[in-house]
């Protein structure tokens, strides 16, 4: 019984969003609902913040492994919150400065680790162990060559072949994945809107 109202909310919200796509007259209703949704999902971030603080305070109190690093997380968190609330978030103020000079370069660095990981993954995984693996290897190889000027210096047809692989076999594969996954998503969404899938609410009754 405790799930009846949540399931009704899910149903109504889902149906409004479907209807507003097909029935122009309901668009204003859909617009409002989407704004509510945006507000509620943003407000939820406080839950995460509370969890972050609890976890690290807990670590420090019980001297869990690597607890000495927990104060760093807490200080970093506090500094951003305080500078943001005190000075505001406009450009060239402390909050923005800390983001631009510390958070952003760290994000860029983590992202760029991928260059190394792509190399090691390619080295290890791309082996011609059977004909299907060989096809994967060859198509990766040709496309890789086709993407840099050096490819066309080796043989001027390489960019054309690489483009062909992208336009035909690759597109066919992408499309099959997309159509299939869309069916999976539609079925899952339908099950949720109609209350058949409810485990996300916790509790099976």
């Amino acid at each position: 019984m405790r799930l009846v109202i949540p399931l009704m909310i899910t149903f109504v919200a889902g149906m409004i969003m479907i209807l507003q796509f097909f029935v122009p007259a309901t668009q204003p209703m859909g617009d409002n609902l989407q704004e509510w949704y945006m507000i509620v999902s943003s407000a939820a971030i406080f839950l995460g913040a509370a969890n972050l603080i609890t976890v690290h305070v807990h670590k420090i109190r019980f001297k869990a492994r690597n607890w000495k690093y927990s104060p760093i997380t807490l200080i970093g968190f506090a500094v951003m919150i305080i500078t943001g609330l005190v000075f505001g978030i406009e450009a060239d103020l402390p909050f923005d400065y800390l983001f631009q000079q510390m958070v952003a370069p760290m994000a860029a660095t983590m992202f760029s680790l991928l260059a190394f990981f792509v190399a090691s993954a390619a080295f290890r995984a791309f082996r011609a162990s059977n004909w299907r693996a060989s096809l994967l290897l060859v198509s990766a190889f040709v496309v890789m060559l086709g993407r840099v000027p050096i490819g066309s210096m080796i043989w001027n047809k390489i960019p054309i072949i690489s483009e062909w692989i992208m336009q035909y076999p690759n597109m066919a594969g992408q499309r099959a994945v997309m159509i299939g996954a869309a069916m999976g998503m539609i079925a899952t969404s339908l099950r949720m809107i109609f209350g058949i899938e409810r485990s996300y609410l916790g509790g099976a009754d």
């Binding site: 990981f117 594969g173 997309m178 299939g180 996954a181 999976g184």
Partner: peptide, 24 residues
């Protein structure tokens, strides 16, 4: 079901559920 990430999982993981397999 992210088409662009499936290749990386295939290269680095032991098993990969491709697209709709995730929903199955």
């Amino acid at each position: 079901a992210m088409p662009s990430q499936i290749p990386f999982f295939i290269a680095a993981c032991d098993y990969t559920l491709i697209g709709e397999e995730l929903f199955a």
